[in-house]
Design a protein around this nucleic acid. Structure first.
Lengths: 293, 293
DNA sequence: GCATGGCCGTGCATGATTGCACGTCGGACG
DNA sequence: CGTCCGACGTGCAATCATGCACGGCCATGC
């Protein structure tokens, strides 16, 4: 039967790269790390790491186990916090996640307010456009463009969330402004990767702009904003984000773009956690248009 | 620092009631159980069990830890299955969850087909009206009346899901059939508990029937169906369920009841699990009206 | 090309954890 | 009311895991 503690050694090796470094982190001898890791690979019957110059790197099976082990770890930490009462103080780690554009332009600049109000709070801001799974403790708080229906999640409405079409001055000087939707289809566009077709910008582009006119695709909104500001093409951005870069000039103001709402989401298990409550409150204050939900 | 393996001992004690029984299950001496448990309580600084005649019973803190520990366990088991290849065979446990009405009348009677097709499959059918959380591995497959939006969940449409209003013969003989919505508000009704106000029957009742006319509330649809068939009042049931009890007579056929769809939901991590695929396929075949989604 | 530093793997002493035997306690049943 | 049975806790011995010291290996830097 698998030794659950071995997952801790496994995670430490993955994070620190070598037996020795993992041993230092866990305050055990490197030889112990090696032996436990061998036992784990033995028990599972698979090799987990590839030995490379510069350390141990996860193999395919290792990646699979890492996902599981990290959830195990998060669950254990959560139980410790809850049972030892650490949840009642605003201290310790909070994992906050949002799309990279929001994280970069809306959250990161104002994180200092939160840090100053709660010096012991340690925020981990994960900028990721793939929706992480709150239920699995992959994050504590998430920003979403829709309100999840799951009963196990609790939500707070932050702000209306609208989109606009933008271009950079160099581009507009070179190509002019599109006069209407017909003309827009002849312009150069920047858009998200196909995996993000479901997002509002992705849907709008797929519907109105031929794929051949999309000059650049990126999974990162920050990349698209930078490229757009530099004049590489037109793009659809949230107005809240576009407002953060003065080089982005709105065009086609009458285009019919979708409207969403911005929600802060957390898991109901974290309802009584002071850390999470502090972050949720900070988020609500961040957006003046917030209304209770 | 907490010993992750201690959670295994903790769960075993909870499930088997005594140190000795837990020790037998884990193939260790009872004294080891006692010592690890003491170490766990020491590390967390809380008492987990109450000693009662007949065994150890979880205290309040124990309940909290149990929820976490069970998720840890499910995660560990999932990693074992995935890495050892046990996922590629249709064997082992599958946890299926649905409302108690659906579980009792639709799933349970036809589980034998599934068991015969896959003798090594061990189905745990959890009848629970509180939506369990698939993402947290509280179940592998769930039946839902809406399609979750979470990207991490995969769904298959099973059938249209309609509701009707029903009464038992004894009741109708005594009180007559309601002639219309006005008259309906003077009848006796059976309904779900207030915690289930969000369900279609709950919403409809809250809207059309005064709370004072609701003679019986139960969280269990089976209870309501039984009471309704025995003539204790009128109630709103899914037509698929009502069809299973010939004593339920449809009334008020023209009432405007909500319409839903029935979905089978699982987590994308289980996409490649043969066990889960077998259950999903069985569910689809169970409902002739199923269409791919 | 050689020295150095860090890392991993192997043998041995140590320390911790486990298992066993025994004592005590509480409840059940005659 | 006494006895028996099962369960939990304590002392001791064995076992197992851990830590340490050493050697081989690789990479980097001089």
């Amino acid at each position: 039967m698998l030794q659950w503690d071995d997952l801790r050694y496994f995670l430490a090796v993955h994070r620190h790269g070598t037996h020795a470094a993992a041993g230092r982190a866990l305050r055990v001898a490197p030889t112990t790390i090696g032996r436990r890791l061998a036992a784990l690979e033995e028990a599972l019957g698979v090799k987990l790491f590839q030995r490379t110059p510069g350390g141990l790197v996860l193999g395919e099976n290792g990646q699979v186990l890492r996902a599981h082990a990290e959830r195990v770890e998060a669950e254990v930490f959560a139980s410790e916090r809850e049972l030892t009462g650490a949840d009642r103080r605003v201290s310790g780690p909070v994992r906050l996640t949002a799309g990279d554009g929001m994280a970069t332009h809306l959250l990161a600049p104002r994180l200092t307010e939160l840090q100053q109000a709660h010096p012991e709070l340690r925020v981990e801001l994960r900028a990721d456009n793939l929706a992480v799974d709150l239920s699995r403790r992959e994050a504590d708080v998430a920003l979403r463009l829709f309100r999840p229906r799951e009963q196990s999640l609790i939500t707070r409405r932050l702000a209306p969330f609208t989109f606009g079409i933008y271009g950079g001055e160099p581009y507009l000087a070179r190509r002019g402004r599109p006069s209407g939707m017909k003309d827009a289809a002849r312009h150069d566009w920047l858009g998200p990767e196909s995996a993000q077709d479901g997002t509002p910008p992705g849907q709008w582009l797929r519907r109105h702009i031929p794929a051949s006119r999309i000059a650049l695709r990126s999974s990162a909104t920050t990349v698209l904003m930078s490229a757009c500001a530099a004049g590489q093409g037109l793009a659809v951005f949230p107005e809240l984000l576009a407002a953060c870069d003065a080089r982005l000039v709105p065009v086609l103001p009458r285009a019919a773009l979708p409207t969403r709402e911005l929600w802060a989401v957390t898991h109901q298990d974290l309802r009584h956690s002071a850390r999470v409550a502090a972050v949720m409150d900070w988020l609500v204050r961040l957006f003046p248009a917030a209304r209770p939900a």
